[in-house]
Design a protein around this nucleic acid. Structure first.
Length: 157
DNA sequence: GCCAACGTTGGC
DNA sequence: GCCAACGTTGGC
């Protein structure tokens, strides 16, 4: 059985929530709510451990890329925004008794001195297996291998 | 703003 | 349970 990943990558639109927003959050911590994709949910709920490190990726901006690192500070618990009719993430099929969606808390860990752009990531042959660099990949949460982690952090130095 | 990719929905 | 239609993501 393969070793469970302890590194991750999450996407966020900086217009909505950037790594600076995370830095400025109370206790530099924010709940990662609004995930409404089963594959992403399952990884978050079943495989994210306390202390796992997470690459913070800015999407839908110029340029898209990895801007820093966050840390999982609380493991999965029900995403209550699914129960709020006024929330954009409302889902009538999720109830407190049978929650369908989950979230974790992440805490600011570090911000890179520069953005590692998607373009630069694509130029690394060793990163070609990352879902991120593949055409049409829409996964908002994905595992990152130790090797990929090391390469990316070396680029950030 | 375009559109390819792909996940979800719903009729049958 | 198939699959066409639809909606969303996200780079360009």
């Amino acid at each position: 059985m393969a070793k469970k990943p302890h590194y991750w990558l999450i996407k966020s639109e900086p217009n909505a929530f950037s790594i600076d927003d995370l830095f400025n959050s109370p206790d530099q911590t924010e709940s990662w709510d609004g995930v409404r994709n089963y594959q992403a949910r399952n990884m978050m709920r079943d495989e994210m451990h306390l202390g796992d490190l997470v690459l913070f990726y800015h999407s839908s901006c110029k340029p898209p890329g990895i801007v820093g690192i966050a840390e999982v500070s609380r493991t999965a618990y029900p995403d209550h925004t699914a129960w709020d009719p006024n929330s954009p993430y409302f889902d009538a099929k999720s109830t407190p008794e049978h929650p369908r969606w989950f979230m974790v808390d992440i805490k600011f860990y570090k911000k890179y001195s520069r953005i590692i752009s998607l373009d630069e990531l694509k130029q690394q042959p060793e990163l070609c297996e990352m879902p991120l660099v593949k055409r049409g990949s829409r996964l908002s949460i994905m595992p990152v291998t130790q090797q990929q982690w090391d390469i990316i952090n070396k680029l950030a130095d």
